[in-house]
Write a protein that binds this DNA or RNA. Structure first.
Length: 802
DNA sequence: GCAAGGTC
């Protein structure tokens, strides 16, 4: 009864996907391969046609696509952003302008006289928003009431059965809340970005015309500035770094081996920062003539194969391994994709779908001149199951499709293709196995160690040798319970070394962890801060990103006037606000009004304080720019005032005071993941336990298996174990929130996400006890429980009592 | 000329 169709009429059904490749896939699946490629108005967006039935009626299907958003958000033409008062932009209306008029026409033409519209746009918020853009173009063609003739397909993968299921379970209308959340983000980003960019560009250009030599525009954006902030934070750490000397003992013993008559033992305390202590210990054991081997442990260590490849990982490898900018990498990947060599290159997923046909890919590659032998090996012996990974519900991991040899591809295309294929083969190979032997020695009261590691089975490393985590170290030829003659016990000196500049690969990790940008936009943000002259790329040092004087000056100015504008929270605040719309908790209008009001105040404050920006730009950038010509213009920086002194409303400093977020805070986060213990090699799970002292505000964790235990993140607001796993060690990522004033994180960020065991920031903050002396290297050793956790001379976790 | 998000 819903369908106003005469008997015997053939229904016209239109389906729209987000991009041509998906239209083709869907057409193929739903038509059972019978769809014909028809002509549309645009060359790039084909229309696929077939006959079938729709809810029991005869129907002709027309499947086509858009190419991303159909509209972009702009100010109306009458608004000249370069000559108006930038502040007024916060209240200005915004309009949508078609990204391509031809594309709108295309959708309107295919959509002429349709009975039903089925929306197959990507199942994320952007896709939901594009649904409404499509509707805008066909709404007059639809029968009344149009809502009854519009359907949304919800699919989580492009696999045959998932597409068919989505077709059977189509729902009425896309989600308006989600779409509105995207619109809110567009408006907020547009107004903030252009207001700040125009304002500071014009003011700085007026005062310092030479700034145009560096960049025509001094842009600000809620993604590009946190991106710059990460680079600056590292540069600041390098600047402040003071090398610290340390001392350690090195003992050598005589061995029976003719090849290695001298064996060098490692001190279990590793190093001490107090020279006298080391000297005292040396004196104490200097009279010893022998080292007694009290224990030899031998075990097999395995190295996990890689996960399915997602975009971020590809970008990181291409940057650090091939020296390619992420922008260039994406261009290459897109080219490979459009030529049919690889699957869609923009994906967050590292998990293959349950019905992924591995053998089909292996078959396609079994005759390849370079890796054909390996692919056929996997076909003959049967490949391994891939690691679990994360299914983000967008696209499958990046995998090879068509087989190509080196002669068919350009140099860079080949490199990327080769990497993608080898990584794919590795993901379904056996893990690599090493034999590890550790010998512990006692000299007086001191412990020393000698260890060796040898690969016993290469597994996936045969096809991806660059992933090898360690070189072989000869196994010690030592016997337990034997005394070895000491040759020497020397004190050696070392110095802590400064970290290097942030590499592009590190930056991508930072952005991903702090949710700055998306897999598709990360390359653009990085390119932006390079093009604007805020950072320079050092290609000789693994594409490390060195902030320029201009970048540093801008960073300092923002940090001192309103650090929130350059911290990752500027983005998370906007995202969180828009989340609330998407979840239907707050209205579109209330969020947009509130966020823009907040940022308008921030903008007003920034413009009022512009004298300070001017001062910093002058001293840190302009004066240094002309350094060669006019030496010593040494303009000392003025002491920076505190917020209170300059009258900035205190409550603006922290979003915690913002009413909107009291509502949002009630949203719960899924916690289904396990925090694997990396001490007992992921056998156990770290469980949160109650601290003994009720007033202790730290998070206490203990491994269910080896009982390794520690506490961390005193006074944090929130501790979440995420579903995403660490690439390195397979443990789950951890997200920790702090009030801004107590934040231990770089740049007082209020949040950090990373692996508890591998993340550099956590490693600095958390005081990990060494796994108890007698058990650390031995997963099976039960002694862990009754040993104090402060082996190796490093004192830990006694400070928690208050 | 200006943001960030899609995409070819």
């Amino acid at each position: 009864t819903l369908y106003k169709t005469g008997k015997g009429k053939t229904l016209k059904i239109m389906m729209v996907a987000e991009k041509p490749s998906i239209a083709k896939t869907i057409a193929g699946i739903l038509s059972g391969g019978t769809a014909r490629e028809g002509k549309g108005i645009i060359k790039s967006c084909s229309v696929w046609e077939y006959e079938g039935d729709f809810k029991g009626y005869k129907a002709k299907f027309h499947i086509t696509s858009v190419a991303g958003h159909m509209y972009s958000r702009d100010f109306p033409e009458k608004v000249d952003t370069w000559s108006c008062d930038p502040k007024s932009l916060f209240e200005e209306e915004t309009i949508q302008t078609p990204t391509s008029k031809a594309l709108c026409k295309h959708i309107q033409t295919v959509g002429k006289d349709i009975d039903f519209l089925l929306l197959w746009l990507d199942c994320d918020r952007e896709g939901e928003n594009i649904c409404f853009e499509v509707i805008e173009n066909v709404k007059t063609s639809l029968p009344f009431p149009k809502e009854n003739h519009i359907f949304r397909a919800k699919f989580s993968s492009l696999a045959n059965k998932d597409i068919k299921a989505a077709y059977e379970e189509i729902i009425h209308m896309p989600n308006e809340y989600e779409s509105k959340s995207v619109e809110a983000r567009q408006i907020i980003d547009l107004k903030i970005g252009i207001a700040f960019s125009v304002f500071q560009t014009l003011r700085l250009r007026e005062k310092y015309p030479m700034i145009e030599n560096v960049s025509r525009v001094i842009s600000y954006g809620p993604c590009q500035f946190p991106t710059l902030g990460f680079c600056i934070e590292r540069a600041e750490r390098i600047k402040k770094f003071v090398p610290e000397p340390y001392w350690y003992l090195n003992a050598t013993i005589k061995s029976d081996s003719a090849v290695t008559p001298n064996l060098s033992l490692k001190w279990k305390r590793k190093k001490l920062f107090d020279q006298t202590s080391v000297e005292i210990i040396q004196t104490e054991i200097s009279s010893c003539t022998t080292a007694w081997c009290n224990r030899i442990s031998e075990y097999t260590e395995s190295q996990n194969k890689p996960l399915g490849l997602n975009t971020v990982k590809l970008l990181k490898v291409a940057s650090s391994g091939f020296g390619l900018s992420s922008h260039v990498t994406m261009r290459i990947a897109e080219h490979l994709y459009l030529s049919g060599f690889i699957t869609y290159p923009r994906t967050e997923s590292t998990a293959y779908s349950s019905n992924f046909n591995f053998n089909e890919v292996l078959e396609a590659h079994k005759s390849h001149p370079d890796w054909g032998y390996y692919a056929s090996g996997l076909l003959e012996e049967g490949h391994e199951k891939p690691r679990a990974g994360v299914d983000a519900g967008d696209h499958p991991p990046i995998t090879p499709v068509r087989c190509a040899d080196q002669s068919q591809l350009q140099d860079l295309d080949w490199k990327i293709y080769q990497f993608i294929t080898q990584n794919f083969l590795a993901t379904i190979s056996k893990p690599a196995k090493y034999k590890v032997v550790k010998a512990e020695f006692i000299i007086g009261p001191e412990f020393f160690e000698l260890s060796g590691k040898q690969m016993v089975s290469s597994g996936f490393l045969e096809i991806t040798p660059w992933l090898s985590s360690s070189q072989d170290v000869e196994l010690p030829d030592i016997q337990q319970g034997v005394e070895y003659e000491i040759n020497s016990i020397e004190i050696k000196e070392g110095k802590t070394t400064s970290p290097g500049y942030l590499t592009e690969s590190d930056l991508i990790s930072c952005m991903e962890a702090n949710e700055i940008g998306t897999d598709a936009s990360i390359p653009t943000h990085i390119k932006n801060i390079i093009d604007r002259g805020y950072v320079k790329v050092n290609t000789k040092k693994g594409r490390s990103l060195v902030p320029t004087n201009l970048g540093m000056a801008l960073g300092r100015a923002y940090c001192e006037i309103d650090s929130e504008l350059i911290l990752p929270k500027v983005r998370s605040y906007i995202e969180k606000s828009c989340d609330a719309i998407a979840k239907g908790k707050v209205t579109f209008k209330s969020v947009v009004d509130h966020v823009l009001k907040t940022f308008k105040q921030k903008f007003e404050f920034y413009s009022e304080q512009f004298a300070l920006v001017d001062k910093i730009i002058k001293s840190d950038f302009v004066d240094k720019y002309g350094e060669e010509r006019k030496k010593d213009k040494g303009n000392k920086n003025q002491a920076v005032k505190d917020y209170k002194e300059i009258g900035f409303p205190q409550e603006m400093r922290s979003y915690e005071h913002c009413k909107l977020f009291e509502e949002v805070k009630t949203i719960t986060v899924e916690k289904t993941a396990h925090l694997h213990c990396n001490i007992c090699k992921n056998k156990g799970t770290m469980k949160k336990i109650k601290p003994k002292n009720k007033r202790d505000t730290s998070i206490h964790l203990r491994c269910s298996q080896c009982k390794y235990e520690f506490s961390c993140f005193k006074d944090c607001n929130k501790f979440e174990i995420l579903k995403n796993g660490c690439e390195n060690c397979n443990s789950s990522l951890v997200r920790v929130n702090y009030p801004v004033k107590d934040s231990p994180f770089p740049m007082s960020a209020n949040q950090h996400t990373g692996c508890l065991f591998c993340d550099e920031v956590y490693k600095e903050i958390v005081e990990y006890p060494e796994a108890s002396e007698n058990s650390s290297s031995q997963p099976e050793n039960k002694k862990a429980e009754d040993k104090p956790a402060d082996a190796g001379g490093i004192i830990i976790s006694k400070k928690k009592k208050r």
